[in-house]
């Protein structure tokens, strides 16, 4: 009799455990259930011991506008074509409100063209670009740093002198050989706008239980729930599950 009673209890438990799989629920629901199931007593979960499993990927889309700081003085007279210079991310790159790349991340720019001003009023010229940022040991390619300028040209002044010279017995037009154009200078620390040149996936560390959302307005990062770890507050598990599912696609 006791054996029958024990067998009945065990079979009922087995049927209950198998029920979620047999209901044909969506993968998101299934993930929700898995998440719910992984919640220990009190809804708190320890962070995973495996650092790789406690990270998730997000993608910085191509052409995301960024602000960079030039860390070396540049100039049409100072710089040489082809030389590189250090740059730094001036403001963090945010993806859906989540900081994907922190401010201060360093990278490299390049002088595409530099020509110092010359005689006869010719202006100095400087064309520079941002090449990449170093993110987690990889290069996040950059583009569209529009800093292609020429200095103040005095060619028209020299030409006016030439016209005056033609009407004058004095060869004042020769003065034009000694009139230089303006130089272009970029001060150290100058800010410039650029864009990311390609989609760039980055693994973000899992937020700790202390950093998790307060239940008011949860950001995407707060909802990050990779395997075995969830924030400790009242998380909208459906959204969290969807977020995990999206993360899994990438």
């Amino acid at each position: 009799m006791l054996a029958i009673f024990v067998a009945t209890i065990l079979s009922a438990a087995a049927v209950e455990a198998a029920a979620p799989e047999s209901d044909g629920v969506s993968s998101a629901d299934a993930t929700e259930m898995v998440l719910s199931a992984s919640l220990p007593e009190g809804g708190k979960a320890p962070l995973s011991d495996d650092p790789e499993s406690a990270r998730r990927d997000i993608t910085i889309p191509k052409l995301t506008p960024i602000s960079i700081q030039i860390l070396k003085p540049l100039g049409s007279k100072l710089s040489k074509t082809g030389e590189t210079f250090p740059i730094r991310l001036a403001a963090p790159i945010l993806v859906n409100g989540v900081e994907a790349v922190p401010a201060g991340t360093e990278g490299m720019g390049e002088v595409i063209h530099a020509k110092k001003s010359g005689g006869m009023g010719a202006a100095g010229e400087l064309v520079v670009t941002a090449r990449y940022l170093d993110v987690d040991g990889r290069q996040l390619p950059l583009r569209s740093l529009h800093w292609a300028q020429s200095g103040q040209s005095r060619v028209d002044t020299v030409n006016t002198l030439n016209v005056a010279s033609a009407a004058s017995p004095l060869p004042i037009g020769l003065v034009g050989f000694f009139i230089g154009g303006g130089q272009i200078n970029v001060a150290e620390g100058a800010l410039a706008d650029a864009k990311t040149a390609a989609d760039f996936s980055i693994a973000l560390p899992q937020v700790s239980s202390q950093q998790a959302g307060t239940g008011q307005e949860l950001s995407e990062g707060d909802l990050a729930v990779p395997s075995g770890a969830v924030p400790d507050e009242a998380v909208d598990t459906e959204s969290a599950a969807a977020d995990v599912h999206q993360g899994g696609k990438e």
Binding site: T81, I112, H113, M120, G121, A122, E125, V127, T129, R143, S144, A148, S153, V155, V158, N159, N162, G173, G176, F177
Partner: peptide
């Protein structure tokens, strides 16, 4: 003049004639 051409973007360049010894440059 060296220029970095980027996809889907339009850039501008100008030519001016400056004084030369024999002819304009």
């Amino acid at each position: 003049l060296g220029l970095l051409v980027e996809s889907d973007e339009t850039q501008f360049a100008k030519c001016k004639i400056k004084m030369g010894i024999v002819a304009g440059r």
